[in-house]
Design a protein around this nucleic acid. Sequence first.
DNA 1: CTTTGGAAG
DNA 2: CTTCGAAAG
Lengths: 299, 299
Amino acid sequence: MPKRGKKGAVSSRRSKTAAKKNDKEAAGEGPALYKDTPDQKTSPSGKPAILKICSWNVDGLRTWIKKKGIDWVKEEAPDILCLQETKCSENKLPAELQEPPGLPHQYRSAPLDKEGYSGMGLLSRQCPLKVSCGIREEEHDQECWVIVAKFDSFVLVAAYVPNSGRGLYRQCWDEAFRKFLKGLPLVLCGDLNVAHEEIDLHNPKGNKKNAGFMPQEHQGFGELLQAVPLADSFRHLCPSTAYAYTIWTYMMNAPSKNVGWRLNYFLLSHSLLPALCDSQIHSKALSSDHCPITLYLAL
Amino acid sequence: MPKRGKKGAVSSRRSKTAAKKNDKEAAGEGPALYKDTPDQKTSPSGKPAILKICSWNVDGLRTWIKKKGIDWVKEEAPDILCLQETKCSENKLPAELQEPPGLPHQYRSAPLDKEGYSGMGLLSRQCPLKVSCGIREEEHDQECWVIVAKFDSFVLVAAYVPNSGRGLYRQCWDEAFRKFLKGLPLVLCGDLNVAHEEIDLHNPKGNKKNAGFMPQEHQGFGELLQAVPLADSFRHLCPSTAYAYTIWTYMMNAPSKNVGWRLNYFLLSHSLLPALCDSQIHSKALSSDHCPITLYLAL
DNA sequence: CTTTGGAAG
DNA sequence: CTTCGAAAG
């Protein structure tokens, strides 16, 4: 009796894939992989994508450059590039960034008192109307976790959100961040340091007490989506795609086993969904422990 | 009028070579190089070498192993191997050392309070009669700069001598070390952290105020030779060979320009000179900023 | 396991 | 410039 209702088919496909994962691992067939999707360069209404944004946690800008990160960016040629964890002070910036990635308008933000930690970059082909750092709250802007760039038709918020290593601070941050974002017509991207739901990490059961999937954290993500409100562009386009991760710890051969997490996002105001052409994960670009993600918008 | 007296010929050859060095550099012909000598495996009286000792400042044992240092040692197959600057605590020793370098009797010495600094090893094919550490003076043995191994026909003192970074301490050490060595029939080897004479470093004029060729240091070396007394085995065999260095700083392309120093030695009691077959510098072995040196003895 | 800055050579 | 240990992820 082939072909059931669509809803049933989807949920049964998800169950089967989940079952397969264990079977495959037991049979030594290798890990369940996410297959990067080909470009989808038109919006639902058929308008062509004319803006491409890339976000990448580079885990050390200088080593990322040595690992050909810039070459990948040149090939991909985004209009806007958002970098997290640059770990590089101004006086140590490699010349390669100045050179020809075609992104002349560059903005950086990093804590001055902690060289080699954190640090963000926003690079743009066109000059933003306005750029600022932080969420306008002294107590939350010590670590330079946000760059805001205003463009004609949207506001881009690039973020590198603190994980819960620092105890209860993450919840405090989440609330302030939600408040800051409220009401803006925006694209929020970056390393949000949280997997939203069980489908967004390899081992949800085992990570309920670990930073990145603690109840407060992933519930906080849900509240962010609801309160601002925002849509998770990747999940919007691929509601049941499993094994799609954007970071694999270097430890314990996690990359080769696809033991990963989806912590990097493009979140969109709902008013931008009609312009959404694609939201991609580039699992094959390995210049960092995180991979790049790209967003195509028809605006 | 060819062929003058031998002495004259030697000194005129040295002058010419020194002049050539500048000419060559000015002409862009590349640096003046020392050419490693082929094995000389008999003593002056024709006795065959039956003992081979190797000394090497490895500048980090673990990285040295990754750079194939052990492979070189296996090929060279010394009877005794003396290592300096192992920078490796006992619990982090790589398995490769235990395995088959054919040197089962191993002794190590390193300051317990400073992980990753200094550290020596002595590995031997045959079991020494006795092994001890230090020069028997509490104040000088904190840093574990000496391993002494007694064999049938000589005492081997392997040393990693402190440089003059620590102000006047080096002179204090020199005196205590001379006193310790007095009267022993010995082979003293290792990184003595001093170039003896101008011929023993690339830039003697420019280094009179730098650790490694300060007047107190190289005069101290002369006193060591005279007081113990000892002979510098390499210089004994090659009294006028220039450009023979055993360490090239990683900085400023020093290796490719042969901007080096001879800081590593085999010094012998004069009673052992009749047994001296060869004292070699292996400039081509580059698993460290220092290269290995080997001694062949007919005993 | 990998990145960073810092000490040391 | 390279080694190492430390802190952080």
